[in-house]
Design a protein around this nucleic acid. Structure first.
Length: 432
RNA sequence: GGAUGGGUGGCCGAGUGGUUUAAGGCAGCGGUCUUGAAAACCGCCGUGGGUUCACGCCCACCGGGGGUUCGAAUCCCUCCCCAUCCGCCA
């Protein structure tokens, strides 16, 4: 969400930002509405001021028993009433209209974000690890994760489909444990080494929380919602719950940055993804993810973004998974982001790099929607915080990456060294 | 599911129709005092809008909306939210 005052002060910069997002200039229309709104406020307040002073005079007139003066004044106030009513209605309508228009505008990319229409314009910034050194490289044709999992008898899409339909899976035995092990491994690093505070958060939230992180009002079709009297949205990511920890709060600058992490299920309708990634666990209606959220001051958010991205990369490195880091171009970034790094892990079964994490800095875009502020040390007043979120990592996709990269000729899967303590010392997953 | 209480500035909290400004306190900021600090004292201390060269002045906002009234934080209606008790339940 943008500050209309900022648009008013620098409309050219605003329109230039929209253009980078592929949008037409909007500042003229927004400013016209804002001017109309402020003109109405001015007229309204003149009438209000007169009504207030007249009302006070009525009080005095009545006190001094001057009934003639009192009734003259009362007639005047009565005449003002219609004018006030109309003005108030108009003001409310205009304010709501302006808010509606602003609420559906995406955040503006930072200057160093590469220009581009779609993912083909994304830019690789670094690459780590060599796929050729992985066990899967010794195979003629590395298998895809679902072939490996099904052959092990530990991954069952049919059973899931019988109860829930497409885009669900049942993991069993050591694969189910692997999912848990990965999550615990990630949480232990983020909390123990990187200073994130582990949270257990609501998975069902109200409209206002979804509005705060900007899933609403524009992306309702991507979400699941409960039925009944009390309707809740199912979170598509713990970013929603963790970022909303700061909503309507005023935080002392000394307490910043706040760093939160949570391992949570995520629910996505995948409404626009029909036909994409239909096989396997890549794209599910339900998956688990370890999420990272930071709340910072404006001057620290860019450094925090690099730090957060590094935290996510660290997980991939420790697991020995080859990956690359790319910066998303203006046309491929999410709605709330100013800048986004995606981490893509190597999947030998697909012979491709696939997204496993997305780390975004949002500036004050979400904070303004949530009313999340901080009190500058030694200063007056409050300012909006900056918010960041990133996956650290998507657990389901990490499981896929482990299966595909560590698969063996005999169909078993080696367990990366650092995960073994979380697997009770197990070195290899074989057919039970 | 049944019953009740409540929503006022960063926080606590007074305010049941006006003539005096949402009192007072806490926290915060600045100052006086002090070797330094504490204490004490003084001052400042919500958001948005309008106006002004500026100092300032004016208006709105007491959960949202509607209504009554010359005038509403205060009375009425409605919606949202929070809490407590009872019942049921992991």
């Amino acid at each position: 969400m943008f500050d209309i005052r900022a648009i008013r002060e620098n409309p050219a910069a605003f329109d230039a930002g929209l253009k980078r997002r592929g949008l037409e200039p909007l500042s003229a229309g927004l400013i016209a509405k804002d001017e109309e709104l402020r003109a109405i406020k001015t007229r309204l307040q003149e009438a209000q001021a007169r009504r207030n002073s007249a009302s006070k005079e009525i009080g005095k007139a009545k006190a001094s028993k001057d009934e003639a003066l009192a009734s003259t004044l009362m007639a005047e106030v009565a005449a003002l009433k219609d004018q006030l009513q109309a003005g108030e209605d108009k003001q409310r309508d205009l304010e709501a209209a302006l808010e509606r228009e602003l609420a559906v505008l995406p955040n503006i990319p930072l200057a160093d974000v590469p220009e581009g229409k779609d993912e083909t314009a994304n830019v690789e910034v670094r690459r780590w690890g060599d796929p050729k050194t992985m066990p899967a490289a010794s195979l003629n044709k590395p298998k895809q994760h679902f072939e490996i999992g099904e052959a092990l008898g530990l991954m069952d899409f049919e059973a899931a489909a019988r109860m829930s339909g497409a885009r669900f899976v049942v993991l069993k035995g050591q694969l189910a444990r692997l999912e848990r092990a990965l999550a615990m491994f990630m949480l232990d690093i983020h909390t123990g080494e990187f200073g994130y505070t582990e949270c257990q958060v609501p998975l069902l939230v109200r409209d206002q929380a979804m509005y705060g992180t900007a899933q609403l009002p524009k992306f309702e079709e991507d979400l699941f919602q409960t039925t009944g009297e009390n309707r809740f949205w199912l979170i598509p990511t713990a970013e929603v719950s963790l970022t909303n920890l700061a909503r309507e709060q005023i935080i002392d600058e000394a307490a910043l940055p706040l760093r939160y992490t949570a391992w949570s299920p995520c629910f996505r309708s995948e409404a626009g993804a029909a036909g994409r990634d239909t096989r396997g666990m890549i794209r599910q209606h339900q998956f688990s993810k370890v999420e990272l959220v930071s709340i910072t001051t404006p001057d620290k958010s860019l450094a925090e973004h690099e730090r957060m991205t590094n935290c996510a990369e660290t997980i991939l490195k420790r697991l020995g998974l080859p990956h690359r880091t790319i910066v998303l171009c203006t046309g491929d970034m999410g709605f709330s982001a100013q800048k986004t790094y995606d981490l893509e892990v190597w999947l030998p079964g697909q012979d491709a790099y696939r997204e496993i994490s997305s780390c975004s800095v949002c500036g004050d875009f979400q904070a303004r929607r949530m009313g999340a502020r901080f009190r500058p040390a030694g200063g007056k007043g409050t300012e909006f915080v900056h918010t960041l979120n990133g996956s650290g990592l998507a657990v389901g996709r990490t499981l896929i990456a482990v299966l595909e990269n560590y698969q063996q000729v005999d169909g078993s899967v080696l367990i990366p060294e650092p995960l073994r303590p979380y697997m009770g010392g197990l070195e290899r997953i074989s057919k039970p």
